[in-house]
């Protein structure tokens, strides 16, 4: 069982490497971090030149860092959706799966192996771009966002939600439909997130409720809000200055919900793939 999982994981990683998926991810991730570094370097230099107050400087630079992390959040979601989007549906459609699934292995092994391989790539990607932005900010401006470990964990959990849905849907629907489902769910969560923020800010209970429901349907955006909340400077949090500073912070229960969501999606993927005709 374990050996079969390792075989599937290694084959999936080898495929990602052979098809230059890893290279593309790495190169664009590095380009992203470089662009962020250049941007924040110039911003800081200009602020020093203009003689902005030392009180204002960390606030703006902190916000720029959070903006970088916001882009990280977006890239994480999209990458998590597309990395495994055809890993099952593609092999089912092409017929590759027939010889694989007729081997003396449990079908769940195939799903779990592919899931695990993509989780490895995703975690590496979040650490590369998320960690890269944080490290660049620390090295260039000396500012380190608080609770970095917690923030990155939430980002990984956000990606994990999308990735697991992508794997689960791949057991049932075609590659393109799968992509549409993942991005569509993200859209729902995204809109729900903003409804919740603006609703809470304006004291509109209904909007806030809609946001909560959207987060229950697809908790990715809630994980970003937790990441943003935990990594922003205390002053920005208190002032609620930017759209990146959540007004309404998801409760810790949402973390439990999200972990349960991932486990349930994975269980669904096992069951669905075990039962389908190949």
């Amino acid at each position: 069982m374990i050996r079969a999982v390792v075989t599937i994981v290694l084959a999936t990683l080898a495929e990602a490497s052979r098809r230059r998926i890893l290279l593309a991810t790495l190169l664009l991730g590095v380009a992203f971090v470089i662009l962020f570094s250049v941007g924040i370097t110039f911003a800081q230099a200009e602020m020093v030149r203009e003689g902005d107050s030392p009180l204002q400087r960390p606030l703006v630079l902190g916000m720029l860092t959070l903006a970088g992390l916001y882009a990280v959040n977006f890239l994480t979601v999209i990458t998590a959706a597309f990395l495994p989007v055809d890993t099952l549906s593609g092999e089912i459609a092409s017929g590759v799966m027939q010889t694989v699934a007729s081997k003396p292995i449990h079908r769940g092994t195939i799903v779990f192996g592919k899931w695990l391989a993509h989780v490895i790539v995703l975690v590496g990607y979040v650490l590369l771009i998320g960690g890269g932005v944080i490290l660049a900010a620390r090295l260039i401006t000396g500012i380190l966002p608080p609770n970095v470990h917690l923030g990155l964990t939430f980002l990984v959990l956000e990606g994990l939600t999308v990735l697991t849905v992508s794997i689960a849907a791949g057991t049932r629907v075609s590659t393109i439909a799968n992509g549409i489902i993942c991005v569509g769910l993200y859209g729902i969560a995204f809109l729900g997130g903003w409804f919740e923020q603006i609703g809470t800010f304006a004291g509109l209970g209904s909007a806030s409720t809609i946001g909560t429901v959207a987060s229950l349907i697809f908790p990715s955006e809630a994980m970003w809000q937790l990441a943003a909340y935990s990594m922003q400077p205390a002053i920005a949090r208190d002032l609620q200055l930017t759209p990146l500073s959540p007004v309404s912070v998801p409760s810790p229960l949402m973390v439990v919900w999200t972990v349960g969501y991932v486990i349930a999606m994975l269980a669904f993927a096992f069951r669905s793939f075990a039962r389908r005709s190949l």
């Binding site: 084959a11 080898a14 495929e15 052979r18 098809r19 092409s94 017929g95 590759v96 027939q98 010889t99 007729s102």
Partner: peptide
């Protein structure tokens, strides 16, 4: 059991 399907396809990157 060994099996060779009709429309056999394998991982062509291997």
């Amino acid at each position: 059991i060994g099996f060779l399907p009709e429309h056999f396809r394998f991982h062509d990157w291997m």
